[in-house]
């Protein structure tokens, strides 16, 4: 029986590094599998030169700018789809297509349209942000308890006003869940786009590492990517709890 208590995650991180070290020692060739210290040293160096922040910043910007535009749009679209059968019927075929095609497969298309530019990456992230949040918002609207709408109706809040004052707020937790999913998927898309054509960003670091036969650099990229997605996921969850407690899923149980 292990009793990790509140320091569980710390033990987890420790365990992770131990496993990594053991695996690296087992392989025994830093040229194939760098040790954690190599990667940490590389990270420290890149922090000093500021290069790390440059690439991290590039990835972050490609993520945040289009998501900031796309996700609200997706929320509006999804709520509209949840509210009206016709709107839903109109967009549903496209939602199905989007949902069943891995967004990464569209990268060559985006590069063809916009060339190797920021616009290509922005458009992909924007697209993913819109459809993922829209799907979640639609699901959220569909799952609002009928009783809650009745409760509004009996207080004289009817029709559109009930929709905006009851249905939309009720689906907010679902929309926020969509935000988390979308962010996770978009990190994958951004990195893939950076690997297939960019001169900065975490994905680019990985590709440069490959071209220079520098596994440490590849590992820095992978490591940074994992950390980035944890920070994002935890950050969003924390922000909801801290700043929007009324929309937290936890408090709805």
């Amino acid at each position: 029986m292990i009793r990790p208590g509140r320091f569980g995650p710390l033990y987890g991180i420790l365990l992770f590094f131990i496993l990594w070290q053991v695996a690296a020692a087992f392989v025994g060739t830093p040229l194939l599998f760098p040790e954690p210290m190599d990667v940490m040293r590389g990270l420290a160096y890149m922090t000093e030169t500021g290069e790390l922040f440059e690439h991290l910043g590039a990835t972050l910007q490609r993520l945040l700018v289009p998501l900031a535009v796309g996700m609200p749009l997706g929320a509006v679209l999804g709520c509209a789809m949840g509210a009206s059968r016709d709107v839903n019927a109109w967009f549903d075929p496209y939602m199905r297509m989007a949902n069943s095609t891995p967004a990464i497969a569209l990268i060559p298309f985006a590069l063809l349209w916009f060339g190797v530019t920021e616009l290509a990456r922005y458009s992909l992230v924007f697209y993913v942000g819109v459809y993922v949040v829209a799907l979640n918002a639609r699901g959220g609207v569909a799952q609002v308890p009928r009783l809650r709408i009745k409760a509004a109706n009996t207080l004289g809040v009817l029709g559109a006003s009930a929709f905006f004052r009851v249905v939309v707020p009720s689906s907010f937790p679902a929309i926020l869940a969509g935000v988390r999913t979308a962010t996770g998927l978009c990190i994958m898309v951004v990195v893939a786009a950076e690997m297939l054509g960019a001169a900065s960003g975490l994905g680019y670091l990985i590709i440069r590492g490959r071209q220079n036969y520098d596994p440490t650099l590849i590992f820095i990229g992978i490591f940074g990517l994992g950390i980035l997605s944890i920070l994002f996921d935890r950050g969003i969850a924390f922000a909801i709890e801290r700043f929007m407690p009324r929309w937290s899923v936890r408090r709805r149980v």
Binding site: F16, I104, G184, I187, M188, V191, A192, M195, L202, G203, I206, G221, I222, L225, G226, I227, L228, S229, I230, D233
Partner: peptide, 9 residues
């Protein structure tokens, strides 16, 4: 962490 590491990377 592992879930956040995109397969492409």
């Amino acid at each position: 962490f592992l879930k956040g590491v995109a397969p492409i990377s």
